[in-house]
Design a binder for these strands. Structure first.
Length: 137
DNA sequence: GCCAACGTTGGC
DNA sequence: GCCAACGTTGGC
């Protein structure tokens, strides 16, 4: 299976990249949206994940990796919701802002732009690479 | 099964 | 803090 690429959102006030780095790994719990759940279930260990700060920040700040595939989310009140485990790989040298992403022709169609409320979304490898490059300083 | 009302997310 | 977008809920 080839590597897949994803983007996850977190409000830095709730759980920031710094929190994530301090923790060294985290269970990505709390997703309560069917579309996002489908994406979580499709994640495989080794997949690369961009970590986006929503609200305060509005920028991609780092790269993470899937370390455990979907398992039941024990923080949910009902059965059926899942989480994955993620671990930080590296921060971006320069955060890539939403404005930068919107300005890139290659990135205009990504869900981050088109489907504003989705919290877990797939990226094509070209899209992932482009954002990574924008963040390499 | 449609659709109006409602709640939440997240950019501005 | 406001509000647009959109997902979810519930009445019919």
């Amino acid at each position: 299976m080839t590597t897949q690429y994803w983007l996850v959102k977190s409000e830095p006030e709730t759980y920031s990249w710094a929190d994530f780095v301090r923790d060294k790994r985290t269970d990505w719990t709390g997703v309560r949206n069917y579309a996002a759940r489908l994406h979580l279930k499709a994640m495989r260990p080794g997949d690369e994940v961009l970590f986006y700060h929503s609200n305060e920040g509005k920028c991609v700040v780092g790269i993470a990796r899937v370390t455990k595939p979907a398992f039941p989310d024990t923080t949910a009140d009902e059965d059926g919701w899942v989480a994955v485990e993620l671990a930080p790989v590296a921060p971006l040298k320069q955060p890539v802002t939403l404005a930068q992403i919107k300005a890139e022709a290659v990135l205009k169609d990504i869900a981050l732009v088109r489907q504003g409320r989705l919290s877990v979304m797939p990226l094509k490898s070209a899209e992932f690479v482009r954002i990574k490059k924008l963040g390499s300083g």
